[in-house]
Simulated assay, not measured.
Amino acid sequence: MTLEWFKSSYSTADEPACVEVSWRKSSYSTADGPECVEVAPTPSAVHVRDSKNPDGPQLTVAPTAWVGFIRGTTE
C-alpha cells in the first residue's frame, strides 16, 4: 500500500496545516454485503477499523505485524 496524506478539513488558512491518513476500504465491502475493514497505513502504525462503524473502536498494529498478517492470509 502506498501511504497517502491529504490536507485535513480541519485545517484553516491562518493555522498550520493538519494532515489525515487516507482510509482504504476493502474491495469486498459493499453497501448491502458483509461487514469489512478499512485500513490506514502510516510510517509507524497501521490502523484498522470496521467499515460499517468508522467511528467505533480501532485496532493499531506495527507495520511489521500487519505485513505478517497479510502474508498469513494470502498463503
Rank of each mutant, 00 (worst) to 15 (best):
H47N: 11
A40D: 06
P57Y: 03
W23G: 03
V46L: 04
S11L: 07
N53C: 00
D50L: 04
V48K: 01
T2A: 11
F69M: 12
V61A: 06
G56C: 05
H47R: 12
P16A: 10
D55G: 11
S44W: 01
H47P: 01
P16V: 12
T42H: 10
M1H: 04
A40M: 09
G68H: 12
V61P: 04
S44E: 09
S51Y: 06
V39L: 13
P54Y: 06
V21Q: 03
T74E: 11
I70P: 00
C18Y: 13
R49G: 00
W5T: 14
A17I: 13
V39C: 07
V39Q: 03
Y28N: 04
F6A: 11
Y28W: 10
S44R: 10
C36G: 14
E35H: 05
S51F: 05
S8R: 05
C36R: 07
M1W: 03
P54E: 06
L3M: 14
K52I: 01
P34E: 14
T12V: 14
R24E: 09
V67A: 14
W66Y: 14
T74W: 02
V46W: 04
S44Y: 07
E75I: 07
D32L: 09
W23H: 10
S11M: 06
E15N: 13
A31W: 01
S27C: 05
V21M: 10
T12K: 09
F6H: 13
S8A: 06
E38S: 13
A13E: 14
W23Q: 12
T2P: 08
S11D: 04
P41L: 08
D32H: 13
W5C: 06
L59T: 09
V19Y: 10
Y10H: 11
A45E: 04
Q58A: 07
S8P: 02
P43S: 11
V19Q: 09
W5V: 12
S22T: 15
T73R: 07
G72I: 08
V37G: 02
E15T: 13
P54I: 00
L3H: 09
W23R: 09
T74G: 01
G33C: 03
P54R: 08
E35N: 15
S29R: 00
A65H: 10
